[in-house]
Design a protein around this nucleic acid. Sequence first.
DNA 1: TCAAAAGTGTTTGCTATACACCCATGA
DNA 2: TCATGGGTGTATAGCAAACACTTTTGA
Lengths: 222, 222
Amino acid sequence: MAFTYEHPHPAVTVDICVFTIRSDELKVLLIKRALDPFLGSWALPGGFVGIDEDLDAAAARELREETGVETGYLEQLCTFGRVDRDPRERVISVAYFALIPSDAIEIRAATDAEGVGWFTASELPPLAFDHRAILDAAFERLLGKLQYSTIAFQLLPETFTMSDLRHIYEVITGKPVDTRNFSKQILSLDAIEETGDMRRDGPHRPAKLYRVLERDTVRITK
Amino acid sequence: MAFTYEHPHPAVTVDICVFTIRSDELKVLLIKRALDPFLGSWALPGGFVGIDEDLDAAAARELREETGVETGYLEQLCTFGRVDRDPRERVISVAYFALIPSDAIEIRAATDAEGVGWFTASELPPLAFDHRAILDAAFERLLGKLQYSTIAFQLLPETFTMSDLRHIYEVITGKPVDTRNFSKQILSLDAIEETGDMRRDGPHRPAKLYRVLERDTVRITK
DNA sequence: TCAAAAGTGTTTGCTATACACCCATGA
DNA sequence: TCATGGGTGTATAGCAAACACTTTTGA
């Protein structure tokens, strides 16, 4: 089957930067390319946008196919369209930025089977196409939004401690965060509530468990 | 001539939200459509991306063709790709956001000749396609960046007074701005300098003229 | 001399930061 | 009882906001 147009049309793809926190590190989902060009290279998950598929839907589909995560935070990042970014044909890629809770990753992507892997954000392998530039833009967005929105909550499991949350900030910014100021500031947002339960996990005082009030809303706080 | 692909390809366009300040109002550039669909409707300037043309270059070309402005501030806004946004075929549009100084508009677009017009941002006519949503997103971006960057300077002519600059803020936000706090705040950015000249334009004390130090850089200030 | 906009400092309140000790538990 | 991380309050500094009068000019 062939599709013919009067004027040349570029191909349009979505590429998704999927972040999560695991083992005290910010992780990025990459897949190993099974086709030329860049066969064998690591790359962002993504693919062609269906001709009858919305952009967001295409990104959500790819996210689901690669991680098994149905929902999760997804926002459009920006569009990369340099003429020479793909050696095959003109490809314009709409990049997305996704965050998923650390406990939501299904086995498919969590195991390194089938050329899918989670990489520490600061230790990435060489990437195919301009995917390194896309990831850099995504990380910058993440770092920015951390400061003025509730975006970090998207990385939390159902219940969590104040330390878990503080840890997310510390891991992403790479800087220690003052515990007293942090909990004051977070609690003043009225965005989380105590579950009433505690977590006991070591030779120390148990930690209060919290849950996020509006799980699927990211609020601007400043 | 025809172009054939194995899989269906969408068309890709750029649409540009061009803002300027004139007559104490925020103005938006619109063009009257000369073709179906939406023949006779007002729409954002824009058009198809050349198969060998970068996205930014396509946006700059459209800006030049419609306003006669060679440079000017241009940034990618976001990409609109709803399946049904164009009744003809699948069209994905990369939206851009442009600011031009109030004195830089060439006659071509400044006169209402050939179905090109500057509209007050708060009094827009019905627009073709999803262009109203694109403009809303652009205005939101403008309002946001006004607060934490030097983006407003892009709307200034070569030399200007402190009142001119304050006026830009007042027109865009719709709120009065305190003159004393404003000049303190602006001067502390070290982004403008006095030219040494004054502007005398009425029965009142003359105003100092300033110029922007780095005309083509937008700096994040917070 | 009057009307109109330009220019300029200080006070106040709030937000952000710095900082240290006791608590509850498991081993 | 000791080591470990959890939990909490206060004092200070820096930034943002409120606020009014004098200056210079053209008519």
